[in-house]
């Protein structure tokens, strides 16, 4: 009885695992990206990985994230051709890197840089409950201000 039950449970488990694997592989790239950007507060699609970016623009975004000490998930588009094109279609944006906050496309390198400079990035991060490390850093001295 016990054995029978166990076998039954295992077979249900196996089936569901197989099922979820199969369905994940078949999911259109759009839905996969949907899941990625909705399951993480901050996501960066880039060339290379944060420790070894393979493009200056991707590197710039990584540096900005580092300065603000933002926890984020990164995806390397160079290791997945499907994702490389898929992300461009998804956000209707022609270039990599791409940054998503709270499931929404925020911008590429230029926009991140300008948001960083204007202070807007700190505000956007605050909205999703991330406190930028720049807020706790030493405030700039008066003579450095313009």
């Amino acid at each position: 009885m016990n054995n029978l039950l166990r076998r039954h449970v295992i077979s249900i488990y196996n089936n569901s695992v197989k099922l979820s694997f199969r369905s994940f592989a078949d999911v259109p790239i759009k839905d996969k990206i949907d899941q990625i950007v909705k399951n993480n507060k901050v996501v960066v699609f880039m060339k290379g990985v944060p420790d070894a970016p393979r493009c200056g623009f991707s590197n710039a975004v990584v540096q900005i994230m580092r300065m603000h000490a933002v926890p984020y998930e990164s995806h390397d588009v160079l290791s997945d051709e499907n994702l490389r094109q898929g992300i461009k279609d998804y956000s209707n944006w022609p270039t990599i890197p791409q940054v998503f906050i709270n499931g929404e496309f925020v911008g590429g390198c230029d926009i991140m840089l300008q948001m960083h400079q204007s202070g807007e990035l700190v505000e956007e991060l605050k909205k999703v409950g991330i406190k930028s490390a720049l807020l706790t850093a030493e405030p700039p001295k008066d003579e450095e201000k313009k």
Binding site: W93, P94, F105, V106, G107, G108, D110, I111, Q114, M115
Partner: peptide, 17 residues
């Protein structure tokens, strides 16, 4: 900003390929 950049990207849609 995002809308501005999108506008420019649209104008240069072919070129940005």
């Amino acid at each position: 900003l995002l809308a501005r950049h999108r506008l420019v990207n649209t104008v240069l849609q072919e070129e940005l390929k």
